[in-house]
Amino acid sequence: MRHRRIESIVDAVGHTPMVRLRSLERETPEVQIYLKLEYANPGGSVKDRPARQMMLDAIADGRLTKDRVLIDSTSGNTGVAYSLFGAALGYRVQLVMPENVSQARKDITRAYGTELVFSDPMEGSDGAIRHCKALVEAEPERYFYPDQYANPSNPKAHFLGTGAEILEQVGDRITHFVTGLGTSGTMMGTTRRLKQHSRPITCVAVEPAQPFHGLEGLKHMGSSIVPPIFDAGLPDEILPVETEDGWDMSDRIAADEGLHVGHSTGANVFGALTLAKRIGRGCVVTLAPDRGDRYFAPQRWEKHYEW
């Protein structure tokens, strides 16, 4: 599918490749471990799927029109996706993000013509959510607010895309699916699709082990605003992963597999390997939400913060 000719970049989303992690399998000889490379999406992350679905669904039913501004809170990847599709489809985009997101994130979204609004860095992503909601409440007629945390089109993108693709790719062998919780859209939508499969597939959610963590993109549900799309009853298990374990795994699969991925991928793969060791036999699938080059630290002369 990925070699096809397309009419718009919007059509390049999905049908991502899946790669086997043979260096990890040496620790678990009876278990196959596969990583689905969501960074192969045109915006560079898994977030292209929900952003595209939320925008297309809203355009179809009239919630998003050319005289409204799409606004949402995002730590980056969803913002890149909105910006990309906004540019391609001709819609204005405004993003609320904590001020301490990396300069690269700010530059990427601005390149598409997106306007940025900054929220308090001490408040994290929850602060960005609150700030965004206040803007929308002040001028509701001006904005289209997709609210990725509450929008059913978010998990729907994964039900129709990610879940169905996993079954096309490894439906004959998959026994376990593992992915991290952020908005929970990936986990919710993919799990619903995998649970329809003829054979049972165990679906495990990875979450940061601590409220204060460094796994960007993931949420510690117990200490966060719980996304309305999150159904705690859907995952078969919640698997806590420490930040350091996720970071170390990112480094390891870059060196051993040629996969330079973000920290949430490291956490996902650490979770997949933990599960693989426990089950002893089977096939575990997880996702690589984005690449590591989204997280290069700023140089010293760039690293000055004002409050």
Binding site: K47, S75, V101, M122, G185, H213, S224, H304
Partner: peptide, 29 residues
């Protein structure tokens, strides 16, 4: 305003009235 990694780390001196900020990782989608 300065990351202590670029100062003297845990030995970075502080004076009366200074502020030490603990900045979280960005979390969420």
């Amino acid at each position: 305003d300065e990351d202590i990694r670029f100062l003297d780390g845990l030995d970075t001196p502080l004076a009366d009235g200074d502020t030490l900020s603990i900045i979280p990782a960005i979390a969420g989608g």
